[in-house]
Structures are given as C-alpha cells and as structure tokens.
Amino acid sequence: MRRVLQFGLPVALAILAVGFYQATYVAPTEATMGNIQRIFYYHVPSNIMGLLFPYVNLVASIVFLATRRSNPMRAQAADAVALASAEVTLVFVSIGLVTGMLWAKPVWGIWWTWDARLTSVLVLWLIYVSYLLLRRFTAGGQTQTLAAVLSIFAAVDVPIVYMSIRWWRTQHPAPVFFGGPGTGIDPHMMPAFLWNIAGWLAWGLMLVMLRYNLERKRQQVEQESALRSLEAGQEVAR
C-alpha cells in the first residue's frame, strides 16, 4: 500500500498539474462559450473514466464468478477489484454529473434536463449506488456472488448509455469525437484534453489500488477470525 502511495501519488498529481496548466493557460478560449468551455477538460475525462471503470468491475465480477469454485484465492482478489472499481466508478460518475450541471447552467440556462444522455448516466449512477447498497445489505459469503451478478446487469446499461445519444433526440451536444465530418475539437485543445485523461486515469488507478489493498486486508482479517473461531470450536470439542 505504501508503494502505491510513494509512486502513484506523485505521478498522478504531476500529470494532473500539467493537465491543469494546459487546460487553464495553454488551451485557446472557445469561440462561443468562452472560459466556461474549459470545464470540458474535466467533465469529459471524468465521464470517460466513469464509463471505463464499470468494465473493470464487470471483468472482475466475471472472473470472480468463473473462479469462485476452482480458485477461491483468485476469486477473492477479483472481488476486491470489483468492489474498488465500483466505488471509483461512483466517484467519477458523480464528478461527471456535477461538472455537467455546472457547465449546463451558464450555457443552457438550466442545471438539468431529462435528455437521453444525462438520464442514462444518472441511471448508471443509480445502478452503482444500488450495487454498493446490495453489498452492504447482504451478509456472509453470498455478498460477493450476488454483487457479481448485479454487476453484469449494470454493465448491460453501459452500452445503452453510449448508444443513447444516437438513438434518441437529445439536447446534449452531438458527439464531439467520432461523430462524423465537422466534429472534433481544435487541435490546440487536444494536449489539455489528453493530459487530463491521462491524469484522471492515473488518479483512478491509484484509488482502485489503494481500495483494493484495503479490501484484501479486510478479507484477511475476516478469514483469520473465522479460522480462529473454528480452532476455538475444536478446542472446546476436545
């Protein structure tokens, strides 16, 4: 855990500092929106991470379900990854929602609109809240299996989030990237955008690793106490 902090924290902070410098001082001011547009450099990377970590959660959950009988040790590690990435997903999606609202108020004149994209991201947020609630409400060994199953349900929602912008008429800006001809950003804005993606990715990975270590320690403590009570039971029986 100390190693993650020693290496990860300076690297993540350094990249984020470069990203901040690029986004605030280097990137040109947007023609129509002005400085408000700079929130884009935080909003979009957060949302990309919010759509990336659910996949980590999904893969870890599938690994857990596949190996829980054959390789319990690996399954426990996978479950710790699943929990860590679910919590980090929730953080990034929350940041994405809040920065989106901060941007929407001056540009659209409203904090929130029930358009397809915003709604889908809100649904994703709600599903991950329910995922963490399920983990809290269940007890014993079944938590991990039930949560892994719910994670597969949650992951089905993520493609709907991405496709929704094309399926429904929407108030959200048309896709900036891969939206066809005429889309894309000024090349001078690209460095700020990429630095921030790299920075938030590093930050997210560091958080996942820290939370993973914490969960592994909790699992260890739980196993040890279970073992101790088992031994105590045998003592009494003898």
Binding site: V123, I127, S130, L133, L134, F137, Q142, V149, A154
Partner: peptide, 22 residues
C-alpha cells in the same frame, strides 16, 4: 437475489427500479 438478505422487502425496489428505468 434479495431473498436471503437483511431487510429484503426494502432491498428489492432499491435494486429493481434502477435497472428497470429504461
């Protein structure tokens, strides 16, 4: 899924409604 959890009556809508929104 929520059958063997604590307060299952509470948990069912909490996990059913978000997935059912679409």
């Amino acid at each position: 899924l929520s059958l063997r959890t604590r307060n299952r009556e509470m948990l069912l809508p909490l996990i059913l409604f978000p997935v059912s929104i679409p």
